[in-house]
Design a protein around this nucleic acid. Sequence first.
DNA 1: GCCACTAAAATTGTTTACAAATTGTGTTGC
DNA 2: GCAACACAATTTGTAAACAATTTTAGTGGC
Lengths: 225, 225
Amino acid sequence: MAGMTTAPEQIIVDSILDAIANHKLRAGTKLGEHSLSEIFSCNRTQVRRALATLTGYQVVEHIPNRGAFVTTPSERDARDVFQARQAIELTICGNVVQFETLPDFPPLHENIGAESRAIAAGNRAETIRLSRKFHLILAELGGNSVLERYLEELTMRSSLILGLYGGDTESQCASDDHCRIVAALEARDGAAAQAEMRAHLQHIEAEVDFTGARKPTGALSSLLL
Amino acid sequence: MAGMTTAPEQIIVDSILDAIANHKLRAGTKLGEHSLSEIFSCNRTQVRRALATLTGYQVVEHIPNRGAFVTTPSERDARDVFQARQAIELTICGNVVQFETLPDFPPLHENIGAESRAIAAGNRAETIRLSRKFHLILAELGGNSVLERYLEELTMRSSLILGLYGGDTESQCASDDHCRIVAALEARDGAAAQAEMRAHLQHIEAEVDFTGARKPTGALSSLLL
DNA sequence: GCCACTAAAATTGTTTACAAATTGTGTTGC
DNA sequence: GCAACACAATTTGTAAACAATTTTAGTGGC
């Protein structure tokens, strides 16, 4: 497994997902097959598969004979996504405190530390990435593979929503929220952890504002790292 | 839209999903591309796309260079699926009772009626189909598109699990459970509805038994209607 | 100047042919 | 008789050519 090169379609999916999560790729952007095959220097077939995968994630919209576009979430989508997140993440919190053997919290602490540093350094992209990662680590600790997979999709869609309708003050206080959640989890206080998680998700959703004009849709070029 | 023929890949997906839901197609069955393209008299490309969609539903497992197989759920999968169902369906119950304008319950009643009749007639396949349909109607009434989509997948996987590990007395009492859930919903008693739903899901999960030998894997021929 | 129509270019969708891998079978050697 | 090897057949994976659709550009008329 030395020279094991990652499959090109996986690279495409990850790159686009990363670009969306970091608000480098905005809603409505067209994802042309030829463009992508050139950018990633691969076959159009592989691009096609990658786009199908992303469509499954509800992160890409596929219009017949027109092509693939980064999904533009509706107001209803936003509401539904955050409610689903609450249902799932509260359950995850309940799971984490219920294990006989304590799960290893160090990864969570490391993540929170890195998050604080990223905020202090003003590194917005890294802050967003680490904030999402926090929820995914927690989901993994929950031990339910179904909820984990769903949350992967939902955090992605959340990023997309915040990129379109979110304010600029985004997730400055997220690090504190995360801290409180972990504290309650370590104290094995499930109810408290769920309360903190609920509050945290409400903080995030509160940043969404549909009244203002949607941010303009960007071009497909900020993809390459 | 007169002679509008449904896309072949949709037909394939629906047929396989239906066959799985009705336990006509069992876990472990190989889904050969050539076989399917002959059965549905279509191109291999379309079969391929259909299988990819089913893989996304976690209902088909794709092994590189080996082909596609009906997923064999593990014990952990079963646990995770039913816990996820609980988280999602309790939230749906909460949603249904919260709308100002009462949702239209007639479809639910019709479904329950048909279910009772199917049970009385000893029509096992129809019973299973209608039982699943009940949960999907309820999900639609809940008004959350995300939860609705997830439940579509989870009910499918539940069918797969019950087909492998379930007893033969399956879902005889389901109709009564459904009745009680709707009654609580109509009374706008969210807590009661959630309690009934929780009990119902526990009844279903109780039918799962991992100790016995897994039922044998069938051949790919019981597909055609 | 603006709208409608037409033709060309670009993009998506589908089919076909080809390559790679796996499975099954038959043979040989012990 | 059994195991290991080699070859053939089947099956999946990939790429390239072809067809259909949409978009864009250009032209003519009002």
